[in-house]
């Protein structure tokens, strides 16, 4: 079980390969890779900056990961989340889950990214041709997090 909050980029393929090899009990590995898009709600995005609350971020992600382990039989999991300024196409977040069977790996991966988006203290601002604005929380993200209960 690994949580990393970092400015630097990561090698998603190498991370997935490492988790795939943790145990021969692992029968399925799921991953979610989040990238910076070049278009927002209303305009083009030229760059995005992510800030976070050092200390609380690590605590919240540890709680979310512990919750996933309570709910699903995971052999391993990984959350990497970057902070700093990024341009379209750059990697922001990687979630990987490994389990004996695919259902647990799929569900736990979706749960981790859904809860991370609404419970981990990260904030995005977007640079557009019209200026820089803070991204507002989306009702769809709240609904996605709430479907997993409390």
């Amino acid at each position: 079980m690994t949580i990393r909050i970092q400015a630097e980029d990561f090698d998603a393929g190498a991370e997935i390969a490492r988790i795939s090899a943790v145990s021969t009990n692992v029968g399925g590995v799921c991953s979610f890779l989040g990238l910076v898009r070049d278009s927002g709600e209303n305009s083009a995005i030229t760059a995005m900056t992510l800030e976070h609350y050092p200390g609380m971020t690590e605590k919240q992600l540890a709680k979310i990961e512990a919750e996933a382990r309570e709910r699903w039989p995971l052999d391993d999991s990984l959350i990497i989340h970057r902070y700093g300024r990024f341009e379209p196409g750059e990697q922001i977040v990687l979630v990987v889950t490994a389990s004996a069977h695919r259902k647990a790996a799929f569900e736990a991966c979706e749960f981790l990214i859904d809860w991370l988006k609404t419970k981990a203290p990260f904030w995005k601002s977007e640079e557009t041709p019209d200026g820089t604005t803070w991204v507002e929380a989306k009702a769809a993200d709240n609904a996605a997090a709430e479907k997993w209960g409390e």
Binding site: Y53, M56, K117, T118, F122, W123, K124, D141
Partner: peptide, 25 residues
């Protein structure tokens, strides 16, 4: 570093943080 409601008690020495709804991921 724990999420609280507005009626949470405060004391000297606490670390209090204000922020908007989270938008990570």
């Amino acid at each position: 570093q724990e999420h609280v409601e507005f009626d949470a008690a405060l004391k000297d020495g606490d670390e209090v943080a204000f922020f908007p709804p989270m938008t990570g991921g």
